[in-house]
Each structure stands twice: as structure tokens, then as C-alpha cells.
Design a protein around this nucleic acid. Sequence first.
DNA 1: ACCCAACTGACAGGTTTATGTCAGTATCAT
DNA 2: ATGATACTGACATAAACCTGTCAGTTGGGT
Lengths: 221, 221
Amino acid sequence: MCRSNRLFDLLQTLRDGHLHTAQTLAEATGVSVRTLYRDMETLVASGVPVIGTRGTGYRLPPTVTLPPLTLTPAELEALNLGLAIASEVADPDLKSAALSLTDKLDAVLPETAVAEADAWKFTKNPFANTARGFAQMPTLRAAIKARQKLRITYTSKDGAVTSRTIRPLHMEYMSRVWTLTAWCEWRSAHRAFRLDLINTAEALPELFTDEAGKTLADYRP
Amino acid sequence: MCRSNRLFDLLQTLRDGHLHTAQTLAEATGVSVRTLYRDMETLVASGVPVIGTRGTGYRLPPTVTLPPLTLTPAELEALNLGLAIASEVADPDLKSAALSLTDKLDAVLPETAVAEADAWKFTKNPFANTARGFAQMPTLRAAIKARQKLRITYTSKDGAVTSRTIRPLHMEYMSRVWTLTAWCEWRSAHRAFRLDLINTAEALPELFTDEAGKTLADYRP
DNA sequence: ACCCAACTGACAGGTTTATGTCAGTATCAT
DNA sequence: ATGATACTGACATAAACCTGTCAGTTGGGT
């Protein structure tokens, strides 16, 4: 399995929020412990907020990852104004959140040169072909909303191309990769599909409803 | 020069907004024309909005680009609150900017299939409602943490206002709407409450513990 | 004090990736 | 129509990267 797929798998595993030791993760991904430490280094360098504690293991705190956004200057202004107001709010938790977010934006905004330079750090790591698969996004999003089944062709990890009918449930930008969570009717199980590995996606006329065991809430990664 | 540095240089060159031919850029970066085309492919795949026109050259339109950001749930809260307020308070220009930015965020944040047409109906004026729901957030969040029962008054879909005691379990942003999942002691069932429809929320001195059938894990929407 | 597990550095060999060359197609402006 | 220039594919070679092994250090929890 190539490295980027392994990193993706690591993220999927860590997403449960539980504790994982390097030993465990290394065995799960079929790789030496040394390499796993290097992978963790790569994840951290890519901005994934994974936390390693000596003597305990790795844990991934719950976070939301925003993809790169392009803003107009006016939108930027609105953003800053809104955060400025939010940081005046009485609630200390919310206030400090607003302040830390303002810091993050400040760190990212004023000097675009720096931001771009950082952006390339992880492009050097071949982790994300984030933009591939964008073409399918409107189709997928519409199908999720309309609760419409999809027929997709997908390149799996071993390189095999498969065709399957799925019930799209949830689409998310998860740590540098767009992911579609769905119920796969072929495998009769939940699956997380990487958008950049979806070759074609066709909305079927067939609709679906929530069935016990097949909803998003039933998904346990 | 390594590839990532070269890509960075290309961006710096393109930043002037002028027209550049592949030939020129290739010479400037000391690389073959074929490789330059590959570099452009990489840039586009990384989300850079560079535009190539056959017969003319490459041009980069001026935009402000945010790199991928990792937000904590609290920061996401602050962001939404800030924009909700900004879109109510500010002048028309800023207001429409705040609205369009909110749209962009909506397009990008995790979406769940649970979003019904109902959720869209009320979004005629979504931001006032969003901001309204935020007022309760500190109370709700604190109650979830402290495992403290709540007494809320709630406007249900048919417009009826009810008052009930609930065990708050989980709060999350579900496709434009903040939702509080709880065990409702009045209905003796799990319920998902929209924050913007909670009129009042009062923490009761009474605590609760996990009971079979009443935990978050037992919830099946 | 002890164990556990996260970390770090070095190095050799294997694998992947990047690059240039060549040949050809597509599309815009004039 | 023509010229200019963006694009695409194939393929061999060179460069960069990834990996396992080994040997060691650091810090947290008990």
C-alpha cells in the first residue's frame, strides 16, 4: 500500500477519538514502528492535530477541518468583524475560542506569501490530491440531499477498479481529503470513499430511506 | 531547485496578474516546457485558480486564499456566531459579504443526510435564528459537561410551545443548524432539538447518570 | 525507581517520483 | 486559414523519497 493511502487509513482509525499505541497502529497498517513515527510526523506537519503522549499513545481530538477557501476582501472584513464581536461575548469559553480563531486567521492572512509557502509543505508530501474529485462534488451533494442512490466506479487501495451502488450519507473534508461516507450495497456495509478515487458518479432514479443499521448514525469507523 | 520551491516561485511570478507564456515560465524556472505544464497541473490540482488560455498564456486572477484550517468545535461555534451577528448588525455591503461567506462555509462544512426540507424552510432568515440559538449555547454546553438536567421551553414544528425536562447528551452543527440531542423525560424518548427553537434553557440542580436506553449510544435517529 | 511508549538519528537498499525528449492534438486571436 | 500557445501521452533515465534495522533518549504514569 502506498504511503498516502496509509496516512488516510491512519486518520480513519484515529477518528474514533480513542487511544492508540504506535505498536498497534504499525501492525494495523503493516509497517514498522519506526515508519509509523515518521507517518505521525507527516500528519502533524500536514496540520492534523494528533497528540502523542509518551507512555500512553496517540489521540485525535475532535476537530473540523476547513478546505482552502477563496474569499473576497469584503468577506474577509465581515469575518474579522464577526470574530471581533464574538470575542466580546461574556461566555469565557466562546470568547477564548473566538480569540484563538482570530489568532489563527491573523497567522494565515496578512502575509500571503507565508501562507502559500506553508501550503506547499504538505504538497511536497504527496498526501493530498485534494482537488481531484471536485468534479463529482455537486452530484454527490445533490444526491445526499435528495436521498438518491448513486452508481460509482471507484479505485480501491489495491488499485482495482470496482463499480457499486451506494447510499450517500455524508460528505466531509477530513484532514486534507474529501471523504464520502455511504452505505455500500455491494458490500452490505458502511464505507468511506475518497473523492479523489471516485472515477465516475451517476445519480440513479432510485431513492432510499433510513433503514436500521444503514444510517449515518450506525457508522462506526 | 526542488519542486515545491519551484511551484512557490511560479506562484510568485504569476501573482502580478499579467500574462505569462509557458515558454517564459519554463525558462525562468530553469525547466523544460513539458515539466512546466506538469507544474501547472499540480497548481490547479492544489486549488490555485490559475487560468491557461490556448494561444495566449497563463493568468492568475487576484483572490485571497485561506489555507486549510483545523478548527476546534468551540472555534467553529465562535465563527458561526460572529458571522450571524455580523450579518445582522453591519451595513448592507458587509451584510451581503457575511451572507456569502456563510454560504461558502455551509458548502464546506460536514453535511448530514439528516437535513430535511424542513431545515431549509426556516432558513429564509437563517442567521437571526442561528444567532438566537447561540445565546443558549454556554448553558447547554456546560450542562452536557456537568451531566445536569435542563428545563427548556421549545417551539416545535407545529408552532406549539412546550416546556420539558431533558438530559442533554450531545450538541452538533448539522447542515446549517445546531442541534441538541437529549433524552426527553416528558416524552420518554430521545429527541433532537434545534437550538434556534429553544426559547429558554435553565439548568436544574438535578444531575443524571447513564441509564440503559437513555444514553447517546442508544440514540437512533 | 520502574515500566511503558513516544521519540530521534544514522544508514543502506529498494521503490516511487520527477524530468526531458519526442510526437501529436486542441483552441484562441487575428 | 494561420500562427501561436496551451495541452496530452509514452517512455527511459535520473533524482528523490521511503523503509527497515538498530541503537539510543525522553517523559509520563504507577
